[in-house]
Structure formats: structure tokens, C-alpha cells
Design a protein around this nucleic acid. Structure first.
Length: 104
DNA sequence: TATTTGACCAAGA
DNA sequence: ATCTTGGCCAAAT
């Protein structure tokens, strides 16, 4: 059996995020049943920029974009294309834009 | 195997 | 409201 590492799980979960919505590192960690908020960020950085994993839809719990492999500026630009308004480096109406994973 | 790192988060002198 | 500090977890070195 392929032992999926925490990173693999994170990437797989990111694919569940619908377009036009954003989630938080904490939400992902909680969805995986853990509190490794920081480990989630690690996955994002290690995550291939390939479109198969929309790491740009992950923002901080505060609604700020925090970091991005290509730069925060690029991240904000992509989010705008997705339909997410960015103001002052933060997601507008972030609470409404935040996507919540199904508990099951 | 042990230590350091990091795109976090919540709380507060 | 902003900045600083400590704590949290997994991956990388």
C-alpha cells in the first residue's frame, strides 16, 4: 500500500476546493484530523506549481494571502481571475469565500 | 536519529 | 488595529 504522506493528503484535499472559493491552512489541517497548520504550509511550498493542485486558493485564517511560491502578488492576481476580490492583500468577504470541507 | 525549518494560529507583556 | 511571543505539527536536512 502506498503510504500517503501528510503532504499527499493535503494536495488531494486541495483538489476538492471549488473554483472561486478559498480555504485556510487550519481548515485543511482540521479536515485531515490534525492540527498541523504549519505542516500544511509545507505541503504548499513543496507542492508542484502544476495546476493539478490549486495551492493559490489557500489563505491564512486571517484572510491574508501569506505566502506563495511565485510571490504573493502573483497569488492575488490568480485569485482575482478565479473571481475572488483581493483588497489590501486580503480576501474581501473572506468569511463568505472560505470553503468548508464536509465532515462526512 | 536529532535538530532545524516553515506559505500557521491564538493570545498578549 | 498592529506587533510580538509562544506553541503546534510534519517534513527536510
Amino acid at each position: 500500500m502506498t503510504q500517503k504522506t501528510f503532504n499527499e493528503k493535503c494536495w488531494h484535499l486541495l483538489t476538492k476546493i471549488p473554483k472561486g472559493k478559498v480555504t485556510t491552512y487550519k481548515e485543511i489541517a482540521e479536515a485531515l484530523g490534525t492540527k498541523a497548520y504549519r505542516a500544511v504550509g509545507m505541503a504548499m511550498n513543496r507542492n508542484p506549481d502544476a495546476p493539478r493542485v490549486p495551492c493559490h486558493r489557500v489563505v491564512a485564517s486571517d484572510g491574508s494571502l501569506h505566502g506563495y511560491a511565485h510571490g504573493l502578488r502573483k497569488k492575488a492576481e490568480i485569485l482575482r481571475k478565479e473571481g475572488v476580490a483581493i483588497t489590501g492583500g486580503r480576501v474581501a468577504d473572506f468569511q463568505e469565500r472560505m470553503y468548508r470541507f464536509r465532515k462526512g
